[in-house]
């Protein structure tokens, strides 16, 4: 099994050398069982995330008979978080570990690139930076 590696060293170096340039944003999408929503939302706030939105959905049940009997619980939550790019790998590595170790905490997570945003205050809020520098 391929374990998720914490960021490539090159990425980290790039982020450090360009302190003054704006921090890139990413969207972190996490799909987990509904009962675990609060747990993951709370945990994700540790990664300089200031904005999270939770949608509810359901997984596509593989086993129809089981789902007809109500034996499977496929209620899911989709957590959308705006995260700074330099913290994204850390968050993903954390989630990967939790997906393996927490009982009933299996899920998937992935990051999407954000190409633009508008408004300085909004950007600072989303990226958790103030006065354009390190917080």
């Amino acid at each position: 099994m391929a374990r998720f590696k914490i960021s490539k060293a090159k990425d980290v170096k790039e982020e450090k050398t360009s302190m003054s340039s704006p921090k890139k944003l990413q969207l972190l999408i996490t799909v987990v069982n509904k009962q675990k929503t609060e747990y993951f939302v709370d945990m994700l706030y540790n990664f300089e995330i200031n904005l999270q939105t939770v949608l509810s959905g359901h997984g596509t049940a593989d086993d129809h008979i089981k789902s007809l009997l109500g034996l499977t619980d496929n209620e899911k939550s989709i957590i959308i978080s705006a995260i700074r790019r330099d913290r994204a790998n850390e968050a993903l590595a954390f989630l990967d570990e939790k997906f393996r170790t927490v009982k009933g905490g299996k899920g998937i997570a992935f990051t999407l690139p954000v190409s633009s945003t508008i408004g300085v205050a909004i950007y600072q809020f989303l990226s958790n930076t103030f006065n354009g520098g390190q917080r």
Partner: peptide, 15 residues
Amino acid sequence: TVPVESVVGLTDFSA
């Protein structure tokens, strides 16, 4: 489709 930068939780896929 939207490109995805990194993924976790899909281990059975790669295997």
